[in-house]
Write a protein that binds this DNA or RNA. Structure first.
Lengths: 207, 207
DNA sequence: GTCTATAAGCGGATAGAC
DNA sequence: GTCTATCCGCTTATAGAC
């Protein structure tokens, strides 16, 4: 693996474990098996590494989403189920970022700009998934304003579920992440039609 | 004001402004108008100050909640409205804590223990408010499991709304906090009865 | 309780050899 | 690209006078 990637991998591992504050560039260099000076050849500073991780997250998320959409067809119940699972895996893989995202984004204007772009895109994605589900008759018709609030609620729960678990002293594992999916299903169920009920309760290829 | 309180007040102001990471004990001492050495007479270190702030938050929150319950009667629509407003003010006053809570709590086991206690109490509070509202016929009957999920959802939104706003690049102000209340109302409305509709849509004394 | 002075240590970052 | 050596600056924390 290239040194630059090794640094990123080492940083993610340490950040997940001890948090960005406790981890120094020296620690990262040691974990990556290189000298501190070498790290500074590849990255300006710690902030720069965090930005690189975010960019990796962004690419990974988009790629996974597109893969799922391509395999299962866009806006199918199957794709929705697969996306849930993917998001949970994603949340776990980059759990330090979820944990600290508000302070990280507040502290770094460059990161903030990139994050907001992704954030808006995700919100739009949820919103359009709702629109499609309604058009297909899987969800009952919902007034526009309520649709906006609903999309926001779904995205908020998705975004903060791991945080919520950690704060409550619950381990982030398969079981508790599954409860997050259950939360989302609970929200959807309030709007689901008979037709939708059959579609959503039928487990997708993701199990 | 006692020096110890002055330190806490100074720390809150600086933390809100620049985050706990960027603020040092020296900064806090300067802001409080005392010497660095003096600060260490009153507190062991920064962590110790953060714990003191959390304890203050805890006391303040409980006191405000009890005041509202006493003035408006427990579990009335009026009290619920007042509690919303109070929570928003609370979130603003200690906004640094909301912003960083996951990392703060992860980093300090003592704080974590105290936080979890409060967290569980709040969840129980929401749950019992739901029970009372259902008993009074303001909300339709909800199966136990769904009731748990609902309480959790309400608490999650309450807890993370300021975070959510900051992450999306929205200013935390009266308008956006009001949208948080609207989110919560949107959630409640899905369960509200005719009787409850009258009670909840009538603005409480809090406006 | 409060101050001044200062020790000790660490993290960030760079220079220059290889 | 990678290393070693090193410096600067800052933060924490303590000692001891008042």
């Amino acid at each position: 693996m290239k040194t630059k990637s090794r640094i990123v991998v080492a940083a993610i591992a340490l950040f997940n474990d001890r948090g960005t504050k406790a981890v120094t560039t020296n620690h990262i260099a040691a974990e990556a098996g290189i000298s501190p000076g070498n790290l500074y050849y590849h990255f300006r500073n710690k902030t720069d590494i965090i930005r690189a991780i975010f960019d990796e997250m962004d690419k990974y998320g988009v790629a996974e989403y597109q893969r799922i959409s391509a395999e299962r067809g866009p806006a199918t119940a199957d794709a929705v189920a697969g996306t849930f699972v993917m998001l949970q895996e994603f949340n776990w893989r980059y759990r330090f970022f979820k944990r600290e995202m508000t302070s990280l984004v507040t502290a770094d204007p460059v990161l903030k700009k990139r994050f907001i772009k992704t954030h808006r895109a995700m919100l739009a994605l949820v919103r359009s998934a709702l629109d499609v589900s309604i058009a297909q008759g899987l969800l009952r018709d919902i007034p526009a304003r309520e649709r906006d609030l609903l999309a926001e609620e779904i995205w908020l729960v998705t975004l903060f579920w791991p945080n919520y678990l950690e704060l409550g002293g619950e381990k982030v594992d398969t079981g508790t992440l599954e409860r997050g999916s259950e939360q989302l299903r609970g929200i959807m169920l309030r709007y689901v039609t008979q037709k939708g009920l059959r579609a959503f309760s039928r487990p997708g290829r993701a199990g």
